[in-house]
C-alpha cells in the first residue's frame, strides 16, 4: 500500500486549522491597528518591581497622551498591576469586544485579576490530568485573546507587563510581530543582572528591539529627611545598559510608603524619547 502525501491530497483539511489560526492572528492585527505602540515591560527575575514600574509608566503615559494608554497584564498566574492601578471588574462584554477595566489616570487594564476568585490561583477546567502538556498553549491563548478580543480603542501606548522569565516576550513577538520593543527592569544586584541579561538576550534573539533599562530600588530615599542611602549592592542598571547598548532610562530609589515609583523629570524625558 502506498499513500500520497498530505499536500498531494489537494482537498482542504476539513477543520481548516491553518485558516482558523490565521483568523486568530488577523483578529489580533485588526484589533491593534488603532494602537500606536506596543511595549513589553520585562525582567528575567521576579521581585524587581516590574509591575510597579509598569503602573508608573502607564500613569506617566496617560498624563501625556490624555488617557490613551492601556496595560495588558501578561503575568497570568500572579497578576498585580490591576490593583496597583486601582482597576476592578466586572468586565463589560459588547459586540465590540470585552471592555477593559479603567484604572487610575484613565488607564485601560486587562488582567486575570478580574477573572479569578480572590486568592485563587489560575486554574483550568477539566481534564485535570497531564495539564503540563497543554497548559503553555492555553496561556498563550489567553494572551492572544487579551490582545485581540479586548476593545482597546485608540491607544498611544499599550504596555504589556510580562511575567518573570524569558519565554513571554517571544510569545508576545509571535502574536504582535510589529511590537515597538521592550523595556528591561532590574534591581542593582549582580544576581538580578545575570538573570535580566538572560531575558534580554532572549528578547534580542527573538528580534525584539530593546528600548532601555530601568533600575528599580536603586538605593532608598528616607521618607522623612529625603536623604538617599544604599539599599542593594551592585550596578546592574548601568551595566546592562552598557552590555546591550541601550540607554539607562531611570534609577528609581525605594521610597518607604510610596504607592508608585517616582520618575524624575529627566528620566521621564528619556522614557518618552525612546517611546517616540
Amino acid at each position: 500500500m502506498s499513500f500520497r502525501t498530505y499536500r498531494d491530497v489537494t482537498g482542504p483539511d476539513a477543520s481548516r486549522v491553518l485558516d482558523q489560526v490565521g483568523a486568530q492572528r488577523a483578529r489580533v492585527r485588526d484589533r491593534l491597528a488603532t494602537v500606536r505602540r506596543v511595549v513589553a515591560v520585562m525582567s528575567g527575575k521576579g521581585g524587581v518591581g516590574k509591575s510597579f514600574v509598569t503602573a508608573a509608566l502607564a500613569r506617566l503615559g496617560a498624563a501625556r497622551w490624555l488617557e490613551r494608554v492601556g496595560v495588558l497584564d501578561a503575568d497570568l498566574r500572579s497578576p498585580t498591576v490591576a490593583r496597583l492601578l486601582g482597576a476592578a471588574g466586572p468586565l463589560r462584554v459588547t459586540d465590540a469586544g470585552v471592555h477593559p477595566a479603567v484604572g487610575a489616570a484613565g488607564v485601560r487594564v486587562i488582567s486575570t485579576e478580574f477573572l479569578l476568585e480572590t486568592g485563587r490561583p489560575l486554574a483550568w477546567r477539566e481534564p485535570e490530568a497531564e495539564q503540563f502538556v497543554w497548559r503553555g498553549t492555553l496561556e498563550v491563548g489567553v494572551l492572544r485573546e487579551f490582545l485581540g478580543d479586548v476593545w482597546w480603542g485608540d491607544l498611544e501606548l499599550l504596555l504589556v507587563d510580562l511575567p518573570p522569565g524569558a519565554d513571554g516576550v517571544a510569545d508576545l513577538r509571535d502574536l504582535v510581530p510589529e511590537m515597538t520593543g521592550a523595556l528591561g527592569v532590574t534591581i542593582p544586584t549582580d544576581e538580578a543582572r545575570q538573570s535580566v541579561a538572560r531575558a534580554l538576550r532572549a528578547a534580542t534573539e527573538a528580534g525584539i528591539r530593546l528600548l532601555g533599562i530601568i533600575e528599580n530600588m536603586a538605593g532608598y530615599q528616607c521618607g522623612e529627611c529625603g536623604r538617599p542611602g544604599p539599599l542593594f549592592p551592585g550596578d546592574a542598571g548601568p551595566a546592562l545598559a552598557a552590555e546591550f547598548g541601550v540607554p539607562l532610562l531611570a534609577r528609581i530609589p525605594f521610597l518607604a510608603g510610596a504607592h508608585e515609583p517616582v520618575f524624575e523629570a529627566d528620566a521621564q524625558a528619556r522614557v518618552f524619547e525612546v517611546l517616540g
Binding site: R125, L138, V142, F146, D149
Partner: peptide
C-alpha cells in the same frame, strides 16, 4: 470575545 478564556479558565 475571550471565547477560549471563558471556556477553559475556572473563573469567578
Amino acid at each position: 470575545p475571550l471565547e477560549q478564556v471563558r471556556a477553559t479558565v475556572r473563573g469567578r
